[in-house]
């Protein structure tokens, strides 16, 4: 790198999981009433990116794709310490699945001249985790997913990371540019500073880019360009349980003993 890397953080506005209600009449999920919030794994991404800037300098730019109200999450990112925020907004992007979404974010990262792209592990509203590797694949960049810790190596123009792998960890070094997905809950996101917060609320205006700015052919994004479609939805039937709450431990032991497990 460059001792002053450009670090771009991909963030997303999602419905607040805790506020999604089930319509008592239809049994369906009502997401429309849920407030929109910053995807919580993205806080770990922002912290990791700001941590790299603490170590080696450079600038941190948050990017988000969505309609204009999604700019709210950019304000949060700027309040946390990001230098700037970019809203990627175009009617052409509507209905994109992970393929065109990662294309659009990859183009934006390139447009911003990113050395490092940092994302959260996955989003809470679709939980695929496909976008960070997708961004890397669209540009042929290196990728580091499930990252627990980052270590910039500016002299070598590389980034080292400790990754969580099944049953353990590995340490990997990657050439730049690189796309990082930070394992959820892996760091302690810093609180927004008061001055930054006032700036974000009152003065900050995000840069807005559309398909044209990013030189994206509208045929390659949106619903039509998405390989996957939702073919149907069905409500999952709950499992019928006894739901017997017992009063003491002996009764519980007796209940467990009486099940077929111990037959």
């Amino acid at each position: 790198m460059t001792h002053n890397p450009t670090i771009v953080v991909g963030i997303k506005q999602v419905p607040d999981d805790d506020e999604v209600r089930i319509d008592p009449d239809t049994g369906r999920l009502d997401r429309s009433s849920a407030p929109a919030v910053l995807n919580s794994p993205d806080r770990n991404a922002l912290e990791a990116a700001l941590g790299v800037r603490d170590d080696v300098g450079g600038q941190v730019i948050a990017m988000t794709m969505g309609p204009p109200p999604a700019a709210d999450v950019l304000k949060e990112a700027v309040a946390m310490g990001c230098d700037d925020g970019v809203l990627i907004s175009d009617i052409a992007f509507g209905g994109s699945d992970t393929w065109p979404t990662s294309l659009t974010l990859a183009r934006t990262a390139e447009y911003l001249d990113a050395d490092i792209v940092v994302c959260g592990e996955e989003t809470t509203d679709s939980s695929t985790g496909q976008v960070p590797p997708g961004i890397a694949a669209h540009r042929g960049w290196a990728q580091l997913t499930y990252v627990e810790e980052l270590e910039p190596l500016p002299e070598a123009n590389q980034l080292a990371a400790r990754r969580d792998v099944e049953g353990g960890y590995e340490r990997v070094v990657a050439d730049l540019p690189v796309v990082v997905a930070v394992a959820f809950g892996e760091n302690e996101p810093r609180p927004a500073g008061l001055h930054r917060k006032i700036y974000a609320e009152n003065e900050f205006e995000p840069v807005t880019v559309d398909a044209n700015d990013l030189d994206i052919d509208e045929e390659t994004v949106g619903l039509e360009a998405s390989p996957t479609n939702v073919g149907g939805m069905e409500t999952i039937e709950g499992v019928d349980r006894e739901r017997t709450v017992v009063d003491d431990v002996d009764e519980l032991a007796e209940a467990i003993r009486s099940t077929e497990v111990f037959a």
């Binding site: 992970t98 393929w99 976008v131 590797p133 694949a137 997913t145 499930y146 969580d164 390989p227 996957t228």
Partner: peptide, 23 residues
Amino acid sequence: GTHTGRDFAGRVAVPTHAGLTAD
């Protein structure tokens, strides 16, 4: 759908323009 499997799937679905469903 292990960490390695998800890392691999996300990478390979893009250049082949595959439809990829998670989990």
